[in-house]
Write a protein that binds this DNA or RNA. Sequence first.
RNA 1: UCCUCGAUAGCUCAAUGGCAGAGCAUCCGGCUGUUAACCGGAGGGUUGCAGGUUCGAGUCCUGCUCGAGGAGCCA
Length: 438
Amino acid sequence: MTDVNETVYDSSVSEVGLYEGKLVRLKGWLYNKRSSGKVLFIILRDGTGTIQCVVSRADIGEDSFLTIDRLNQESSLIIEGRVRKDPRAPGGYEIGVTGFSVVAAAFPDYPISLKEHGIEFLLDHRHLWIRTPRQRAILAIRAEVMKACRDFLDGEGFIEVDAPILTPSACEGTTTLFSTDYFGEKAFLSQSGQLYNEAAIMALGRVYCFGPAFRAEKSKTRRHLTEFWMVEPEAAFMEFEELLGLEERMVTYVVEKVLQNREKELVLVGRNPEDLREVKPPFPRMTYDEAIKVLNEQGFEISWGEDFGAPHETALASLHRKPLFITHYPTQIKAFYMKPDPDRPEVVLGADLLAPEGYGEIIGGGERIADYDLLKQRLEENRLPAEDYGWYLDLRKYGSVPHSGFGMGIERLVTWICRLEHVRETIPFPRMLTRLRP
RNA sequence: UCCUCGAUAGCUCAAUGGCAGAGCAUCCGGCUGUUAACCGGAGGGUUGCAGGUUCGAGUCCUGCUCGAGGAGCCA
């Protein structure tokens, strides 16, 4: 049945269809095993997918059959066999095993059996949980999202500039920061690279930073991590209207790329790709004033000047099937660097982008204050230490220009795109209020 | 920090105040096309911790610990 001179092709599980009728060699892990006496079905996973491998006692001999029959879940092995189409196989193709070698037999107590598990148990075993097809799919989509962000911004003339993680003070001053000791001085983990971006645009024009951000808030919800990833573009000479257009095109591009390259994964995690095909410009817009009116009409008790809570955001966003811009928030509830609307200084030229289906804010951004005196005044109003912001004020002293930027939270974006219940599945090793390990 | 809910076998869960149970996983056996295979058998417990009520507590009461969902805050 096997010609000793026949070529054996090295393949990944995902590309096995290219070798129909040929012999292939697959390297991976035993995901599941079913036996029917003389025939054994092995589901092999290799990081690109899973495939059914059929082992028959008659084909490989009694000893080999017993060896493979005794392997436990997650044993690593190399399998050789012939690719064939079979409607009975999940995925359409299967491998008729002609030979194998065990790389390492797994201990018999692999914790993540193929049944239901609670979230605490799964998070305690996150290092193993990520092996499951669903988690693999989510992480692959995350990577696609991050790549699409970079590709889009690179294509728009942005240059990636890394912002520091260790910083001497708060970027926005309001939220809680993780502190650490820096050779006897107190230092903080960055919660945003934005202020450094503002310095970088005066050198490079258009920049973005892409990195982790840290928030020591005691938030305990499905939308919060203490360590999360954010992409923050910033552009010199870009005003508010142009910024919203950029955000719209970027979100559209990212969604398009995920549909193009990770549709299988989307389906696997339970997101209907058709929902996402509607995400195209223009996105609906609503001013803060209008939003307050709509919320009051819906029975919410919220008055002008209050910030939105999660239920408010959900109510507003569920009016549309596309992301929704909320613009012109009250100056008093937004960060000190946001530029007040020249026609109406009580509101800022800032916007949040709310994902549909109750996923909340995925982007926050706006035009920044370019005027030296106004920025100085805002710093004082917010009681921020002058010595830490001297360099930031310098940017307004030496050739200040109108400029805008935004931050997009990767985990929230992925949560919405995948239609997940919680952000914790969208990052390889989540850091949350009650979780630092593994 | 606040509100609500929860903690029983490795995992997911059941058990009216009255003998601590099932499915899965593990081990042993069976089955020539399985689909989170199936069938038979075995092992596996300080019921989160500390008190209390009771003839008797997994179950009722008090305190604590840990976790989940939500609020506030935010991406």
